[in-house]
């Protein structure tokens, strides 16, 4: 009896699919039995179990990526009802139906909802988003970080490289080489660290080049979209300040 009532209610999905990186995208509809508390990932799992579209045809199951299922890894970012977000945290009960699911097209689409976020990891390498502590001998403990600073820096460290801010940014596209908000915020994080600060100029130099911080157009969609609530626009403005200072220091010291 309980099963019967559960299967009468249906959830409709319209998923943008793509068979290969080069092939054309197409929309496919799916109708799934509603289950209380289901989210977009559990719906995709349901499609995987029974890969049948709304017309009843057997199709290849929809591909997607996910890991943590608790909105901390950033792997399952996709565009759900027009907004980029994590599929694992997108509860069906809170979504308008039909639920439209699309890949984040700012990134190259590998297949269906799977995208290639390599550019974000390359950006982190470019700005040296780490603290070099390796040496040939023990360098000893670094300087202490003030607790007050640690508290806001911790917020910046929540970035999971999910790509939502890049998807929301009108200046991250194929006509521009803008690095995107995430990496700029990481520069602020590592430049705030007492040991990381020792390499602050290298990170600023990396952003003061083509496709660096100059690409920001102040639409501020990033800060409104970040699932971790990271103050991205404050980070960008702070790095604007640091690069401006660095610019004048460089000019006046030669």
């Amino acid at each position: 009896m309980a099963e019967q009532t559960a299967s009468t209610k249906k959830v409709k999905f319209i998923i943008t699919r793509q068979d290969s990186p080069e092939s054309a995208p197409y929309a496919e509809e799916f109708e799934l039995p509603y289950r209380p508390g289901m989210n977009v990932i559990s719906a995709l799992m349901e499609i995987q179990r029974n890969p049948q579209n709304a017309k009843g045809e057997k199709v290849a199951p929809v591909c997607w990526e996910s890991n943590c299922l608790e909105e901390v890894c950033g792997a399952c970012s996709m565009v759900i009802n027009g907004k980029p977000r994590q599929a694992c945290a997108a509860l069906v009960d809170k979504l308008e139906q039909p639920i439209r699911v699309q890949p984040m097209r700012t990134f190259p689409v590998v297949r269906d909802l799977v995208i290639d976020r390599s550019r974000m990891f390359n950006a982190l390498k470019r700005v040296k988003a780490w603290i070099p502590i390796d040496g040939t001998y023990d360098l000893g403990p670094g300087p202490r970080m003030a607790e007050k600073k640690r508290q806001w820096a911790y917020e910046l460290s929540k970035c999971m490289t999910c790509g939502v801010c890049l998807e929301a940014c009108p200046n991250v596209n194929d006509k521009s080489d803008f690095i995107g908000p995430a990496a700029i915020s990481q520069v602020r994080l590592f430049n705030a660290h007492p040991t990381g600060e020792m390499n602050a100029d290298e990170r600023l130099d990396a952003l003061m080049d083509d496709g660096g911080i100059e690409g920001c157009g102040n639409s501020q969609n990033c800060v409104r979209s970040c699932p971790k609530g990271i103050p991205l626009t404050t980070s960008i403005a702070e790095i604007n300040k640091q690069t401006t200072k660095h610019l004048f220091k460089k000019w006046l010291s030669v």
Partner: peptide, 16 residues
């Protein structure tokens, strides 16, 4: 201006 790819349909925020 040419480099911009406006997305105001999806993100209707005043800053955007």
């Amino acid at each position: 201006a040419y480099q911009a790819k406006p997305n105001n349909g999806r993100f209707q925020y005043s800053r955007n």
